[in-house]
Simulated assay, not measured.
Amino acid sequence: ARVRALSRPRSSGPRGNRTLSAGNLVLDRDAKTDRRGEADIHLTATEYRLLEYLLRNKNRVLSRIDILESVWDITFN
């Protein structure tokens, strides 16, 4: 899990690169906040990781195994 976390792409640019969005949904990775329009969304840690993973991989088809390995750190051999 640590190797996977370290190999994930990191943004070292300005703060604007630390946000992910889809439509009017915005996830601020620095502040760990999510908003849909003007409303704050309160997520559990796992829900936040799942949303972040889906937003980082939007426009990609993700398998169930990809999601389980990346969000829940379950490894399939």
Rank of each mutant, 00 (worst) to 15 (best):
F76E: 07
T75Y: 08
R60D: 12
T19K: 13
G13N: 11
D34R: 03
S63E: 06
L43D: 04
L27H: 01
G23F: 04
N24I: 00
G23N: 05
V71N: 01
K58T: 05
D34K: 06
E47G: 13
K32I: 13
T44E: 07
S11L: 10
V61W: 08
L50F: 12
S21C: 01
V71E: 04
T44P: 01
S63W: 00
A5Q: 02
L25G: 03
V26F: 00
L68D: 15
N57R: 07
H42P: 02
N57H: 15
R36H: 15
I74P: 01
P14H: 11
A22K: 12
D40I: 13
R10T: 11
E47F: 13
T75I: 08
N77Y: 00
L50Q: 13
L62S: 10
E69T: 15
E52C: 05
E38R: 14
S7P: 02
D73Q: 14
A1E: 04
N77H: 04
L68W: 14
A5G: 07
I41P: 03
R56P: 00
P9Q: 08
N57C: 10
A31S: 15
N24M: 03
D28V: 04
D40L: 15
R64S: 11
I74R: 02
R49I: 09
V26N: 04
L54H: 09
R60S: 11
R18Q: 12
N59T: 14
Y53M: 04
E69H: 05
L27K: 04
R35W: 10
V61Q: 06
F76A: 05
A22V: 04
G23I: 07
R15W: 14
G13L: 10
L62I: 03
E38I: 11
R64T: 11
D66Y: 00
T33D: 02
E52H: 01
S7V: 02
V61I: 11
T75K: 14
K32W: 09
L50S: 11
